[in-house]
Computed example of a mutant assay.
Amino acid sequence: MDESFSPTIFLYGMALVLAVGKAFTLTIWRTLPKPRLGLRQEMLQAWKNRRLQKQAATNAGQSPRKEPTAEDSSRSAEGAEREPHVTMPAPIDRRLISEPP
């Protein structure tokens, strides 16, 4: 065998080539757009979201409702000022509602 060939240098060179190749591959894979979920997972997620929305709607519909009084509405308005995420419905002006003849 020729004295100019060194197995150690060859192994280090191959390790360097593999490391650089892997670094480029990982960089390329990281920059590629993420694939969408499969159709099965998409349908399962949509079904789960729909069930949760229906549950929330039925739970909100089952809560007992009472006619608000003037005292309750002022208390609710104060609570809405403290909690900005709570929305209050606009008061109904009874004069604008036309009565049947």
Rank of each mutant, 00 (worst) to 15 (best):
T58W: 05
T31S: 12
S4G: 15
P101H: 02
S76H: 09
R30L: 04
L52V: 11
R82W: 14
T27F: 15
P35I: 03
P7S: 02
R40T: 13
R30M: 03
G21M: 02
P100N: 09
P91Y: 00
K48C: 10
D93H: 04
R50P: 12
Q55R: 01
P91F: 01
L18T: 08
A77H: 03
R51Y: 05
A77C: 02
K22N: 11
M14N: 14
L52T: 13
E71V: 05
R95H: 10
V86Q: 08
V20T: 15
Q53M: 06
W47T: 15
A80V: 11
A80C: 10
L44S: 03
T69G: 01
P89M: 06
P101M: 02
P89S: 04
E3Y: 05
E81P: 08
A77N: 06
T8Q: 13
K22I: 10
A57K: 08
N49F: 02
R75N: 10
K54N: 08
G79P: 07
I28K: 13
D2I: 01
T25L: 12
Q41N: 05
M14E: 14
R50Y: 13
S98Y: 06
G38N: 08
A56G: 05
L37K: 14
A46S: 03
L44P: 10
T31A: 14
D72R: 00
P100L: 06
F5N: 09
N49Q: 15
E81L: 12
T58Q: 08
L32A: 01
E42W: 06
F5E: 00
K22V: 08
S76F: 08
I9P: 10
E78M: 13
A15D: 15
P7L: 08
A60E: 02
D72V: 11
T58Y: 05
R40C: 12
T69Y: 09
K54W: 11
E3L: 09
P7Q: 03
Q45S: 15
S98H: 04
R50D: 08
Y12R: 15
M88Y: 05
L39N: 14
Q55N: 07
V17D: 08
K66A: 10
P68F: 06
M1R: 02
S73R: 02
F5I: 07
R51D: 11
P100I: 07
S76N: 09
M88T: 01
I92R: 08
P7K: 03
V17L: 07
P64I: 10
Q62H: 13
E83H: 14
K48E: 07
L96R: 10
L18H: 09
P68V: 13
S76W: 09
